[in-house]
């Protein structure tokens, strides 16, 4: 488990597009697309989980990469 690469994934249907995740991401890996939902750029995400912790709606999950 521990060494597997993890990625952030957003539940778009419940994202409120507040941009909290964008602010805390150290890699600039997450953007709010057109004010509707947040989207993670998988190539940039290092799976640190900061966005998931900051998301006020708790709609970001950390998942194993390649799922």
């Amino acid at each position: 488990m521990g060494k597997e690469k993890r990625l952030a994934r957003v539940d778009r249907d419940h994202c409120v597009a507040c941009g909290c995740c964008v602010k805390v991401c150290p890699r600039g890996a997450v953007q709010v697309v057109r004010g509707v939902f947040a989207q993670v750029e998988e190539a940039l995400c290092v799976g640190c989980g900061k966005c998931a912790k900051a998301c006020p709606a708790s709609v970001i999950g950390m998942e194993a990469a390649g799922q």
């Binding site: 409120v16 597009a17 507040c18 909290c20 004010g35 509707v36 900051a54 998301c55 006020p56 709606a57 708790s58």
Partner: peptide, 16 residues
């Protein structure tokens, strides 16, 4: 969470 107001903020909902 700190910014949980943003989940139901009317301005946020309206702009979305």
């Amino acid at each position: 969470k700190p910014r949980s107001w943003c989940v139901y903020c009317p301005m946020g909902t309206m702009t979305q």
